[in-house]
């Protein structure tokens, strides 16, 4: 079976997400992304939250084919359910390890 190439995006939420709200937040984010990307293209993006780093930052996995759609969806989502929301994509990489590496001081 051919393995799909994937991309990890380090994303920051403008509003903090408490630990108890995470499962609900995850579902709301997928729903909002489905709405933005569209039913026919969502499968190409196939987003999944892999890990919460803190109350604002998390790692979103998507397939390489749907990487652009994921970035655009995260840019235009301004509401989750009824709550105001905004997402900033900070970095992207092919591995989680590289994503979490601190940049070398110049």
């Amino acid at each position: 079976m051919m393995r799909r190439k994937i991309r990890y995006i380090l994303t920051e939420s403008a509003k903090p997400v408490t630990e108890s709200d995470r499962p609900q937040f995850e579902q709301q984010l997928y729903r909002a992304m489905l709405h933005s990307i569209g039913e026919l293209s969502y499968h190409r993006t196939n987003p999944k939250i892999m890990k919460f780093i803190d109350d604002k930052r998390f790692i979103l996995r998507c397939s390489l084919d749907g990487y652009t759609n994921a970035l655009l969806a995260l840019s235009i989502i301004k509401k989750l359910d009824v709550k105001e929301a905004a997402f900033y994509t900070l970095k992207s990489s092919g591995t989680i390890k590289a994503l979490l590496k601190e940049p070398k001081a110049k």
């Binding site: 655009l72 840019s75 905004a86 900033y88």
Partner: peptide, 17 residues
């Protein structure tokens, strides 16, 4: 407001859109 900011990556994608 802060809610309408975009990162450099997002701004590039929006420009490409």
């Amino acid at each position: 407001s802060e809610m309408y900011l975009a990162s450099e990556m997002q701004l590039i994608e929006l420009a490409m859109l």
